[in-house]
Design a protein around this nucleic acid. Structure first.
Lengths: 146, 146
DNA sequence: CAAGATTGATCTGTCAATCTTT
DNA sequence: AAAGATTGACAGATCAATCTTG
């Protein structure tokens, strides 16, 4: 009989791998966010959005695209962009077909992002990049490229 | 001059590695939780706690220990355990020094966990384990063992 | 109507302050 | 006083339902 089609439970090794990964991943991303937020007042989510806007032509991007890049639901994105707009980091304007929206970085948003870039880079290096050996780096790169 | 002490920004490769990891990690853990919750009504957080209780002698564990194993704050754990107690999955009782608490699995909690184990195993295998080649597996195991 | 976005209710997590027992 | 746990207010995320425009 096969042992593949009806897994009863994880083996001890698999359990260790899964639990270890979860704890490492959560601890590491929390540490990055803690450093970023303490120095800039931006959350990790804020930073990701500002980065995408900052990289775009005219600092302007369709809302739909942001959702795709980050893998966020429409709902989450809508709520988050509303809050960021209230804080003056970006503006929203309807643009074309259906209920399509164009998101634009404000000057204040651009400044907040530029100020945060080096802090973010140091945090990611300290808690993530610097702890990866070449094998781990290659493995994670492969997992992430889909 | 050194390029180490004052990182200005991540390189393109580093950015790809970091963003790719974040998206993969969030997508993958969400997929596991979606499968688990759809079939059992348990969240990933619920499952982790039930698993630790289930593995303990007498299905009983000190609250402090759970926090340490999972890397959770005392606050988060307190709120979460209160909710799980209301759902009848576990009981809380003061035990000894200070404000120490002993957490015990109920029969209903034990049944819910046992029912969820194979579903969880299939989900973790499908979305995580089966997608790791030997190098990735070894690399993640190293990162997680601290 | 279909795609894209929003809304409100609810649930989870965090922060700061507080409480209890030794 | 110190350790461990709780509380309440608030921020962030999710779900289901709804809205808008081509």
């Amino acid at each position: 009989m096969s042992t593949e089609h009806q897994r009863d439970a994880l083996s001890a090794d698999e359990k260790q791998l899964w639990r270890g990964f979860l704890k490492w991943s959560e601890t590491m991303t929390s540490a990055v966010e803690r450093d970023l937020t303490a120095a800039t007042g931006l959350s990790a989510a804020d930073f990701q959005i500002l980065a995408r806007l900052s990289e775009a032509d005219d600092h302007r991007v369709m809302q739909k695209n942001i959702g795709g890049w980050l893998g966020w639901s429409a709902t989450r994105l809508s709520h988050h962009l509303a809050r960021m707009q209230e804080r003056g980091l970006l503006t929203r304007a309807s643009a074309g077909a259906g209920r399509r929206m164009a998101i634009t970085l404000t000057d204040a948003g651009a400044r907040a992002y530029e100020n945060a870039v080096p802090i973010h880079a140091v945090a990611v290096a300290k808690h993530f990049l610097d702890r990866l050996d070449p094998d781990a780096r290659a493995a994670l790169l492969r997992l992430g490229e889909d």
